[in-house]
């Protein structure tokens, strides 16, 4: 029987854990902005447009024979364009944001299906719908891992440089405006780094489950922290901890890695919320007891 140590010595498994750790670091940091700024739907919209990008990439690679246009580059292109469209419409057009998110979400998915069905299957075989939508972290190659690491470091550097301004923007937009912060530009940067993060995370859990990894660990961290920095750090720790636990369980029980990770994180969220709620009730009762 293959032991865990045997598994860990395999190159693909090492890549799987490294990809998970980098993606989870982004989830802890960027997921914090998603949760505190109530951007879950926006993130969902951007995440699902990456499916169009993946389909477009397969089409370009098979029909136009452009080999460097990998699915990750296609996903980056589509997610960044959707982030720009969302920012433009939020800033300059009087459109309901949720309607726009729905439109972008649906168009992104539809384009993905059309491109995948129009590609030349005699030239190459695309990844299955299942692995695109639900992820297959076992097949993260060296090139993809390198791009993931570069993107993660770039996004974290941007957040470190703009941390104060992003905090002001997400806490009090009016104050940001009167403090000479370029609110429209900063909003665009925030949307774009969310888009890039979605692409990185999609390599671990797939497009459908990006939202879970981007929101649940930081939502748990939000229950126990008093500042944005603490929430980012605790969110990252939770994210890595539960994702690695999920991967080990997936290896042990031979279950799909992405779905197992999401299920573990979801269970922890429910337990955390129950514990916090019960603890709050007990403390309230103690406070109400006459001395």
């Amino acid at each position: 029987m293959t032991s865990i140590l045997d598994y860990l010595s395999m190159h693909l498994i090492q890549n799987m854990f490294l990809a998970t750790i980098f993606a989870c670091t982004l989830c802890g940091v960027i997921g914090t902005y998603v949760v505190v700024n109530k951007m879950v739907s926006i993130t969902g919209g951007i995440a699902h447009t990456t499916f169009g990008g993946v389909g477009f990439s397969y089409y370009v690679m098979s029909v136009l024979l452009v080999g460097w246009f990998t699915p990750m580059i296609g996903a980056l292109l589509f997610s960044i364009v959707s982030a720009i469209i969302l920012t433009y419409c939020r800033t300059f057009l009087d459109l309901r944001q949720d309607t726009l998110i729905g439109v972008i979400w649906a168009i992104g998915m539809a384009l993905g299906v059309i491109f995948l069905s129009s590609m030349d299957h005699s030239v190459m075989t695309p990844a299955s719908y299942e692995s695109i939508l639900f992820g297959n972290v076992l097949f993260v190659g060296n090139q993809t891992l390198t791009i993931m690491i570069i993107l993660t470091i770039t996004v974290l550097a941007i957040v470190a440089l703009l941390f104060e301004d992003l905090q002001i923007l997400t806490f009090d937009e009016i104050h940001a405006k009167i403090s000479n912060i370029k609110v429209n530009l900063l909003t665009l940067i925030l949307y774009v780094i969310i888009a890039v993060s979605c692409v990185v995370v999609a390599n671990v859990v797939g497009i459908i489950m990006i939202l879970a990894l981007m929101t649940i660990p930081t939502a748990i961290a939000n229950l126990y922290t008093a500042s944005l920095k603490e929430m980012m750090i605790l969110g990252t720790i939770f994210s890595i901890l539960f994702a690695v636990l999920g991967l080990f369980l997936a290896l042990a029980f031979n279950s799909p890695p992405g779905a197992t990770v999401v299920l573990i994180i979801g269970l922890v969220f429910v337990v955390s919320l129950s514990v916090k709620h019960t603890y709050g009730k007990i403390m309230n009762k103690r406070c109400k007891k006459p001395s």
Binding site: V36, Q167, T170, F171, D172, I174, N222, T225, A226, S227, L228, E230, M231
Partner: peptide
Amino acid sequence: MFDLRYPI
């Protein structure tokens, strides 16, 4: 105007 659940 403020979201008091904001961690700050």
